[in-house]
């Protein structure tokens, strides 16, 4: 890449790029079906299965379906389907790493829009204390384990428990705000109901509406409120180390000024204070690269694909962004 091109990229405002990219991704994932798009049914992002016009499907939905098998079936050829879907998921994830969250996830995008609304209204955001943050971030792993155990418990008796009702087959989807929010964008409001057809469904859809209400308010005050609980994010992190797209930190260049930490929507402190690790992607990271844009140290933070630095922090870029921003506000 020529140095001129490189400079112009490093001077770029990643936030604006991301804003427009997210809109594009949202249109593709939520309305892509109108153009007969069906990218994959194992997408590593919340491209919800409920809007009929979706352009691809969130992997958690087939995952819950597929693990709903008896132990015997796990030893049968049926497992090939499970493995294929899983392999597709891992492959797609490894291409873009957690940038799926920051750049593609429709629920992340909706939350970012809500944040923009808050900014317009001039209301300050909520910030978790470190202790709260650390307590809450464990929840997504709990959700991930439940998401697999519940469907397993439909086909099998777990620990001598009676088999679960079929209504918990896609229990996480019932709780996920993707199910309630995204169909609205296609004019389908039918997910905003309580389903009284069985006790389980009543509870699940009730919880779903509670989660929706809390998420809407939560996302208004806290940036990316739901993401801290997202089991997809937990599942991502298992494979994040091997991904092609990387976020690298050079600890020797870090002054620990904390700029990156303060602009981080997720509130990840390691980005500023961890000087040892080179691969700085954390489980809550959504790879929005705001930290890279906020870092004034030459090459301290880098977005990489193997053999190439795509975007990196530069002193010049930092001041260029800062100036254009300050001018814009004038």
């Amino acid at each position: 890449m020529s140095t001129v091109k490189k400079r112009s990229i490093n001077h770029g405002d990643v936030n604006r790029f991301r804003f427009w990219f997210q809109i594009g991704a949202f249109v593709i994932l939520v309305y892509g079906g109108y153009w007969a798009l069906d990218i994959s049914t194992s997408l590593p992002t919340f491209s919800c299965v409920f809007p009929s016009s979706r352009g691809g499907t969130c992997y958690l939905y087939p995952l819950q379906h597929q693990v709903n098998m008896t132990w015997k079936q796990f030893a049968s050829p049926r497992v090939i389907g499970v493995l294929t879907a899983f392999g597709t998921f891992v492959f797609l994830f490894l291409l873009f790493n957690k940038a799926w969250c920051g750049f593609a996830c429709p629920i992340g995008t909706v939350q970012d829009w809500i944040t923009r609304l808050r900014l317009r209204m001039g209301i300050r955001p909520g910030v978790y204390t470190e202790a709260t943050f650390n307590r809450l971030k464990v929840l997504k792993y709990v959700l991930l384990v439940l998401l697999i155990l519940l469907p397993l418990g439909i086909s099998n008796s777990l620990l001598g428990l009676p088999k679960f009702s079929h209504d918990v087959a896609t229990s996480f989807c019932m709780l996920c705000p993707g199910r309630t929010i995204l169909p609205i964008f296609t004019g389908d409001f039918s997910q905003l109901t309580i389903d009284f057809s069985s006790k389980t469904m009543t509870v699940l859809t009730g919880l779903g509406m509670a989660v929706l209400g809390t998420t809407l308010v939560g996302a208004f005050y806290k940036k990316r409120f739901f993401c801290l609980f997202c089991p997809m994010s937990a599942l991502h992190y298992v494979f994040s180390k091997g991904a092609l797209l990387g976020l690298k930190k050079d600890g020797a260049k870090c002054t620990r000024c904390g700029n990156c930490y303060r602009v981080c929507d997720m509130g990840i402190r390691e980005i500023a204070d961890d000087l040892e690790r080179r691969n700085i992607v954390q489980d809550d990271c959504m790879m929005c690269f705001k930290c890279v844009a906020a870092c004034p140290e030459e090459g301290c933070l880098k977005v990489t694909v193997p053999g190439l630095t795509v975007y990196q922090s530069t002193e010049e870029g930092f001041f260029a962004r800062s100036a254009s921003r300050l001018n814009h506000e004038r």
């Binding site: 001039g122 000024c257 700029n259 303060r262 705001k290 800062s322």
Partner: peptide
Amino acid sequence: LYDAVTMDTPFLYDMIPAVADR
């Protein structure tokens, strides 16, 4: 003189902590 202030949003709730952090 070395360190500069970075803010995320141009609001006092963000700018004052940004200045403080610096």
